[in-house]
């Protein structure tokens, strides 16, 4: 659909402005930074400002000599800390995604089955937390889970336990925090597909002899698949790199890669190593991100 048949100079200018302004912005502030991260991940750390060696040595005697090193990546492989962090992040992200699906699917389904004026309200209730501060919502769980937190106090007063349980600063709290903050991201795309689901199809399957669970397996689930995939990616990808939740709710051993990267950068001030951590994280994520993009573009086509 070419809308401009024979554009004049002025019209072409407008077209260039529309395309070029955001394009250049994103090139400069989104794409180029990745190139820089990649570059610095091959540099050596220095106690200096900035704390890394240059990629090109511009000094006169050296000419144009490439000063690249694979030390950072070698270190990532050698030091167990990183491998453990990556694996643990993947494990936590996967399990929380599964939990989000388990909670989000029935919720989305129930919303999609609700008749109209009420449905909008239920949807609003899902979206509302999305607008309120993420940080404060994670913090709310500190109030709930702490040694002197609400849950412990409740259990103590009922007499189920004699001394407070360690709930805060554990992996369990991290799972809880991730499910809590990301479940709306699961519900919304699921709702979008389930809402379009034709109830006639369910009845047709039942009419042809499928029992309720078979109807779910044969009709509902396959037709909801695009929403399930989108929802899972929307939870998995950010959860994998999550920093705030493990930092606030996790224990010292809740080593998620986002937290490791953050600490490497701010505590150890090893920028090249942090960059290498980021590059590997991005490599892990590239497949799910591309899958997500494919999914986003499909409705357009």
């Amino acid at each position: 659909m070419t809308m401009v048949v024979n554009p004049g100079k002025r019209d072409r200018l407008w077209r260039s402005v529309v395309i070029a302004t955001p394009y250049l912005w994103l090139l400069l502030f989104f794409l180029v930074p990745f190139a820089i991260v990649l570059k610095i991940s091959f540099a050596d750390p220095l106690v200096a400002q900035p704390p890394f060696t240059a990629f090109f040595d511009w000094s006169a005697d050296a000419g144009k000599r490439v000063l690249a090193t694979l030390d950072n990546y070698r270190f990532l492989l050698e030091d167990k800390l990183y491998l453990v962090s990556y694996l643990k992040s993947i494990k936590i992200a996967l399990i929380s995604t599964g939990l989000c699906l388990l909670l989000g699917f029935p919720m989305a389904y129930a919303i999609a089955l609700t008749p109209y004026p009420w449905r909008n309200l239920l949807l609003l209730l899902v979206i509302l937390p999305f607008w309120t501060s993420f940080l404060l919502r994670v913090y709310a769980w500190m109030v709930m889970l702490g040694k002197q937190g609400l849950i412990n106090n409740l259990l103590l007063s009922v007499g189920v336990i004699d001394e407070p349980l360690q709930m805060l600063y554990t992996d369990g709290a991290v799972y809880l925090g991730i499910v809590y903050t990301y479940v709306p991201f699961m519900i919304l795309p699921l709702y979008a597909t389930l809402e379009k689901l034709d109830l006639d199809l369910h009845e047709a399957a039942a009419d042809l002899g499928a029992r309720p669970l078979q109807v779910f397996r044969d009709v509902t689930l396959p037709l909801a698949m695009p929403g399930i995939i989108a929802g899972c990616l929307l939870v998995f990808i950010p959860a994998l790199g999550e920093y705030v939740i493990p930092a606030l709710l996790g224990g010292l051993d809740s080593l998620m890669i986002g937290r490791t990267l953050y600490d490497e950068f701010f505590v150890n001030r090893d920028w090249p190593l942090a960059s290498a951590v980021a590059v590997v994280l991005l490599l892990i994520l590239i497949l799910p991100i591309m899958l997500f993009q494919r999914l986003q573009q499909e409705p357009e086509a």
Binding site: I19, P22, Y23, L26, L27, L28, F29, F30, L31, V32, P33, F34, I36, V37, I40, P50, L233, L234, I237, P238, L240, G241, E242, Y243, G258, L261, Y262, F265, W271, A274, S275, A278, L281, L282, L285, P288, I289, F292, Q293, Q296, Q297
Partner: peptide, 26 residues
């Protein structure tokens, strides 16, 4: 362009933050 629009939506914050800082420093 399409890719650059969609990617920030799912990019882990630590990566976005780190890359932008390194851009500013450079």
């Amino acid at each position: 362009f399409t890719g650059m629009i969609a990617a920030p939506l799912v990019m882990p914050e630590v990566i976005t933050g780190l890359s932008l800082l390194l851009l500013f420093v450079s």
